[in-house]
Design a protein around this nucleic acid. Structure first.
Length: 795
RNA sequence: GGGCGCGUAGCUCAGUGGGAGAGCGCUCGCUUCACACGCGAGAGGUCGCUGGUUCGAAACCAGCCGUGCCCACCA
């Protein structure tokens, strides 16, 4: 399980839990693909460590070994998902090589073959010498490599002229079969139709004219090696050139390469360059940086090779897959990824689906050698239908993604018409990393539309990439990976889930320990606040009680939070959803409400008890989708508990409890409390001193004095300062100089604010064009500042 | 070569037209009977640069600089 899985799981689980709690019929199937290349390589390594080889074991025994390996390790990731708290339907776990799944794969293969989409061809593919298999375009990764560009003179037949060509791969020149120049190139057009002689090999190379040759690049003359370069291959097919292959599947020169046979590509390059130099035809060599394909699987340099492979044409499948995204039937978010998806499908090319491996779905094709028949069937045929002879099954297996592409319906029982398929297809939601968009998502859409005949999912959310702490890619080979399980051990699954959701975003982000820490802090806070509530509340039914203004305030804040968090989750805005939960629990509930009502709570007063139990129940349920463990644990102690929280109702915002007046009143009292605290801190009053004061006008709420340590029953002394309506009286705890310094500071602040507001209101454009409410607000502020300043100067 | 992002407080990131925000870190004060994984109060930002649009720009437009990712058969 890597961090991407953990993020993905946290998002999906939040949605699944929320919807399950809402009473909806939810299904989350977890499963694994057989990861053909990676798994086979792993087991092959084991076998080699025992001094044996895959070939020595034979196909059947080797595949048996891989199954053993799979039984041993395949369940690990499932167990890890459980530790994360993913509430999947674990008894429905699926694997892409399950019996039923194989049926789906065969049926799809056969139907695509019958439609003419799947075909076999001798064509140029990305050959991975590391795995000795063809791989698809999507498994190729281009990297910049520092090479040399070699300029080689090819003599023109029956002439003293030479034609200089440039190449980065002289080792393939033995396979040259032509040269091309641009027909409008003045330097060379007289050579078109003549022949050049291939150095070292002596082959006659016809010189062709072709518009695709760039006059300005290299020397403007292009040597054509149809066996070893994709562009040359296409040239060759267009011009009907012979295709000479000089490098074998093992990455070594073959017998076509003559003297160089058996050498590795690198050795052959060195030798050939030496020989060219000896012949005096190597005109120059210069350093050259260019983009080179590497295998994403083995890391080795791709060798473009002509070989007999199975392909799937994609045009017909791609078109409807584009339409559904254009029409937003499949909604890819954030939106920019729709365009990436569409651009890719627009330029899609045939997909090489065969792999020269043993682990995977062996292609359901049988050959009859005597009568040259090819049979494609869902089930293995007994004998050749023509001659009754023995059949030989195609040895290659399918690209793992070919079977993964069927996941949304194959896991629900397709091709059978199952209740699961009817109930849950099309599915609602898929989260994915963006590197999976083409490999998997696009292909699921294509097969979904082609086979069950409907989109596989409605919403696709492309989540951010969590990078390592230093901004590099998290990768095992770089050693930058962070193990989610270690994080779970250290801080808990809830903390990790909260942290990942909080740090996720539409852009790529660095892994943030602080966010995970914030998650564990929140769990801790919830636990302690719950303890306070559950140990002190009177035995009453949880219910919202509205007799006290602070209770109305809390309930109003709570219901607004519920509404907002729910909206955020529905919009897949997980980061804001969890941060709002955090802010509510910390600020509204703990810092203010609990502190305000403590005296009432300790007395076991019923209104506050009922309100708190009610609020706690709703907060636990609201947080459960993101922090399932701690909320479930606390729930076990809640008096309203009936069964498990995981199946308790998710709260729905009760707008009748929203009370703007109460919010305004309490917000005012809170602001005053904060001003008083700030004032005494600024003036340097001992923390415990209770300061005497009197209040102008209506007395503030009881808690203002309690939480700021002021006694508003002021006796005797002179007022020395004003904080809002509060006149602070002289006392031993007050230092006159500090008070004066503080007042001076405030006066300065006010003058600057008044200046700013006056300038703004003096701007005719502002007053004339800005919305009335904005202007009015500004006037209000100016008035308040002027009044306060006047008071301070007067006092 | 084409495309898509990003550049905001010491760090990691929110914020998309009306007086700069969060978490962490930092400073000061608190062992206050839920929590020191805590409480209270603060400091800290010419919002990459330059122009433009607007009464008003971190946000919109253009250019530049820096940085990341994806796609691509220029030998």
């Amino acid at each position: 399980l890597h961090m991407g899985h953990a993020l993905n799981g946290s998002m999906q689980d939040a949605l699944v839990r929320m919807n399950r709690m809402r009473g909806r019929n939810t299904l989350w199937i977890l499963g694994t693909d057989h990861a053909g290349i990676a798994t086979q390589a792993k087991v092959e390594q084991e076998v080699r460590a025992e001094g044996k080889t895959r070939q020595g074991l034979g196909r059947e025994a080797f595949v048996e070994r891989v199954w053993e390996w799979k039984e041993k390790y395949g369940s690990q990731i499932i167990e890890q998902y459980k530790r994360l708290g993913a509430s999947c339907d674990y008894e429905r776990e699926r694997f892409t090589l399950d019996e039923g799944y194989v049926r789906a794969v065969h049926k799809v293969f056969k139907q695509l073959y019958d439609k003419g989409y799947i075909y076999r061809d001798n064509y140029m593919v990305n050959w991975d010498p590391g795995t000795r298999s063809a791989i698809s375009d999507l498994e190729v990764e281009n990297k910049d490599v520092d090479d040399f560009l070699f300029y080689i003179d090819y003599p023109i037949e029956d002439s003293d002229e030479v034609l200089t060509v440039a190449t980065v791969r002289p080792e393939t020149m033995i396979g040259d079969t032509a040269i091309a120049v641009n027909p409008v190139d003045e330097r060379y057009k007289h050579l078109i139709g003549k022949h050049a002689i291939l150095p070292l090999a002596g082959r006659r190379l016809p010189i062709h004219g072709d518009d695709d040759v760039e006059i300005g690049f290299g020397t403007g003359a292009l040597k054509i090696t149809p066996g070893h370069d994709i562009k040359d291959f296409e040239f060759g097919r267009k011009l009907g050139l012979p295709e000479i292959v000089v490098i074998g599947p093992d990455g070594r020169m073959n017998k076509e390469a003559g003297d160089y046979e058996g050498q590795t590509v690198a050795e052959a390059q060195k030798a050939i360059v030496e020989d060219l130099r000896a012949e005096g035809v190597l005109r120059k060599e210069e350093p050259y940086t260019h983009s080179v394909p590497f295998s994403h699987r083995s890391g080795e340099r791709i060798e473009p090779l002509i070989s007999l492979q199975w392909f799937c044409r994609m045009d017909e499948l791609a078109r409807p897959a584009m339409t559904v995204v254009e029409a937003d039937e499949v909604d890819i978010q954030p939106d920019q990824w729709s365009r990436v998806y569409l651009n890719w499908l627009e330029e899609i090319r045939p997909w090489c689906i065969s792999r020269q491996l043993w682990w995977g779905h062996q292609i359901p094709v049988w050959y009859c050698d005597p009568c040259n028949e090819t049979i494609v069937a869902e089930n293995a045929p007994e004998r050749c239908g023509q001659c009754g002879g023995e059949l030989r099954q195609e040895e290659d297996v399918l690209d793992t993604w070919f079977s993964s592409a069927l996941w949304p319906f194959a896991t629900l029982g397709w091709p059978d018409d199952t209740p699961e398929l009817r109930a849950f297809y099309p599915t609602s939601f898929l989260t994915t990393a963006r590197e999976i968009l083409f490999l998997w998502v696009a292909r699921m859409v294509m097969t979904g539309l082609e086979f069950p005949g409907d989109i596989p999912f409605r919403d696709v959310y492309v989540h951010s990439v969590i990078q390592a702490r230093d901004g590099r890619r998290m990768s095992k080979s770089l050693g930058t990976g962070i193990d989610p399980l270690e994080e779970i051990d250290e801080r808990g699954a809830d903390a990790l889930r909260f942290g990942l959701l909080a740090m996720s975003s539409t852009q790529d982000v660095r892994y943030s320990d602080a966010k995970v820490e914030q998650g564990s802090d929140l769990a801790n806070k919830l636990y302690n606040a719950s303890r306070l509530i559950l140990l002190n509340a009177a035995e009453v039914e949880p219910a919202p009680r509205t007799a006290h203004v602070e209770d109305r305030w809390l309930l109003s804040r709570l219901e607004k939070t519920i509404g907002s968090v729910t909206e955020r989750l529905e919009a897949y805005d997980f980061a804001h959803a969890v941060q709002e939960c955090y802010a509510f629990v910390y600020n509204d509930l703990c810092d203010w409400y609990l502190e305000i009502v403590k005296p009432r709570l300790y007395e076991g007063e019923e209104d506050v008890s009922a309100t708190l139990l009610y609020a706690l129940e709703r907060v636990l349920a609201l947080l459960h989708p993101t922090m399932p463990f701690v909320t479930e644990e606390i729930w076990a102690y809640h008096p309203a508990r009936d069964g498990h929280l995981v199946v308790h109702a998710f709260p729905e915002a009760d707008t009748s409890l929203i009370d703007e007046d109460a919010e305004e009143d309490v917000a005012g009292a809170i602001a005053l409390t904060r001003s008083l605290r700030a004032w005494r801190d600024m003036v340097g009053v001992p923390a415990k001193a209770v300061l005497p004061a009197v209040v102008d006008g209506i007395a503030p709420s009881e808690f203002v004095g309690r939480l700021s340590r002021f006694a508003f029953d002021g006796v005797g002394s002179q007022p020395v300062a004003s904080v809002g309506p509060v006149r602070v009286l002289a006392s031993e705890a007050l230092d006159a100089e500090a008070v004066e310094a503080r007042l001076g500071g405030r006066r300065k602040e006010l003058r600057s604010e008044i200046d700013r507001a006056e300038r703004k209101l003096g701007n005719e454009g502002f007053v004339a064009k800005a919305p009335v409410a904005v202007v009015e607000e500004e006037r209000g502020k100016l008035d308040r500042y002027r009044r306060e300043l006047k008071e301070l100067e007067g006092g």
